[in-house]
Nucleic acid binder design. Structure first.
Lengths: 214, 214, 214, 214
DNA sequence: GATGAATGAGCGTTCATTCAT
DNA sequence: CATGAATGAACGCTCATTCAT
């Protein structure tokens, strides 16, 4: 198992191998249960080399978070054409999101679960990425409301809660799609669009659901 | 902090004190970082007693998950009157859910985060509870569709995905509400109902959002 | 080798065994080269027990320094009768000093060498003990000068340097006596008294040696 | 700090740079805590080169001890004119000794502390140098006794102990002078001459201090 | 001649777990 | 019933040392 034991590779290559192994191990076992020994072995190198290049378990984990956060945001960005209408942008973004998280389940576990449960430093690193995505969704909601000629704009806190719920639902569906094997990114994205967009549509035409009196 | 150090309590009581301490510690530190020493001290008993009653760290953690899962499901069930319309049931259930998770953040952390990241055994335990909630929501969606005279029924997989997304959004909002301090359970529930129910409403009247051709 | 492996001893006893083993190991190998493994084995216990009782290598070393410093100062104090003349007090003190350092060479190594070369914290601990001894000698010199009717008192810095030299010579002779096996404490003390006291005597009668012009 | 990184220097020069760096590092950190990495970096060369030229950490340390021992003995020898009277020779030797150790504190630490606390091999290396100095002092004492017409000669063991004490006092004062910043080599040497020579003077004129009966 | 790449071995420390009382 | 005493196993990390180029 693990990478083929090739000797004398340039530093940059070895570093990527180590990050690959670390992401897999952190994702599979969790931050604390992952041992540097296992990561080194999976990377096909000795432990001291991991320390020489990545400094410490914390630094290694941070490097994983950063690399995978950039990869995920990059994948979503690459999937979206900002010239298209808001609903199409959301659809494309979701598709890219589910495709990427489906292809890199360990990376998604690192970002979604591990990073958020082992110290503020890591959480902040992952939160920065999530904030980018929430901001993207928030802006889509505002634009969509205008496209639907809703006037005046939705209150800010309302929009924040909606974006939070939408992203939360997406994150949850990503886990679901990773588990239930026959769910494709398309299906996951379609489910979420139906769930969310139509609801937002009703909101925008002024027919929100009203809670009963307490 | 910690139980008052009283001697000679009946076993059942002592066990609950230990579980209280364990839930708080597991929730605060995470499964791996929580030490049996800390739990025993917080419970006000000696470490061997913890082992005598709860066997091992794994068993102790399992007991925590079971107890808190039952408590959460019980709280939601107690908040819902199955004689009322589906939307009212969902509203009441969400209210109870957000209230309970808000009052017991460590327990929620154990169920939502810790249980799902430290081995299949624990994850299955928590998944059983989640399945109950998803089943409840699934059935509400089916009932609501019928109440709205939608015909024919939504495809099963569609409903499953929708329930999954709704529960996922709720879980995400629970964390959000626990963090952003000024969010009350009512506000969280209202946001989610607006987001979800109105969307479902559109779906049910036959106006789903259509994905573009690939 | 090492202590007989006796099980279940009271904590206080085990702690002393550990300190015994630690002093011997630190003295023999030096602070850095001494391994906690070796200390634990020599003490006849497992390594975790050493940590449970003594906390860390640094704390263990500090405990060694403190115990042995007190033992040495106590031995010198017990050997001296402050009612006797100054030269007799010095003689008795030296005798006690050489006897104690001769009987506990590892302890002497810890105090004289190891403590002073591995960080300010340890050095300060040992310096406090040395300061007690230097103060004792300083006061003896002053008293002796008065007993010899020297008038006026020797300048303070002069006395400080003399006490420093005397103590330094004693420390050096302790090592010498530990190495050259046939040297008894009496012989070492006599050599030093001849060397020092007679020199001080000359000083006090006003015949110091004069350095040549530069 | 460290040598300027110049390429293609003759081996002898490179070696001296390495030894300079090693002496400083060993003196500053101690033998065990000094790392070959730090030494190589301070010397401005790569680690394998250090091994190529100096073989191992032990050999490197031995080379340091040898070089600095020779330098110290050389400095003392150069300061003394063997044609002068014994007291003048001692004075000049002490002056040279304190001046050299003051100018090279790391070297002095290597010889006086590090070499004596990390294995018999190193200790023997430093002991050889110390023996030279003790021999020099021993002979001075014998000569001085004759110059003072003392008859018969002092017993050999007596002289050995006196020389040992004198050298020990000097070593101790060297450390003291390195620490207390305002002490010049002249002051240190004067203190020691007053302390020792006058005492020896009394001894030689037949007025030694007598220990009390046991 | 000189170095970037790599490692075996070991250290300080911690933790879940178990006896003996 | 309850606990003070004790440990096997593992973990994060570092270091002296050596290849392959």
């Amino acid at each position: 198992m693990g990478a083929v034991k090739t000797k004398r590779m340039p530093r940059a290559v070895r570093e990527q191998q180590m990050l690959d192994a670390a992401v897999e191990t952190f994702g599979r076992r969790g931050y604390m249960a992952a041992s540097m020994d296992e990561i080194a072995e999976l990377a096909g190198v000795s432990k001291p080399l991991v320390y020489l290049y990545l400094n410490s378990k914390e630094d290694l984990f941070t490097a994983c978070i950063r690399r995978e956060a950039e990869a995920l945001v990059g994948a979503v960005r690459a999937g979206v054409d900002t010239g298209l209408p808001a609903d199409r942008q959301l659809w494309d973004g979701l598709l890219a999101f589910f495709a990427h998280t489906g292809r890199h389940p360990h990376a998604w576990s690192v970002l979604h679960i591990q990073a958020r449960t082992h110290g503020e430093t890591f959480a902040a690193e992952a939160a920065a990425m999530r904030a980018e995505i929430v901001a993207f969704v928030t802006q889509l909601i505002v634009v969509a409301a205008r496209e639907a000629h809703r006037d005046p704009d939705l209150p800010e806190r309302e929009v924040a809660g909606l974006a939070e719920a939408l992203v939360g639902a997406a994150e949850s569906l990503a886990a679901w799609a990773n588990t239930a094997e026959s769910v494709t990114p398309r299906q996951a994205a379609a489910t979420l669009m139906n769930f969310a967009w139509a609801g937002l549509g009703n909101l925008m035409t002024g027919h929100p659901w009203s809670p009963p009196e307490p």
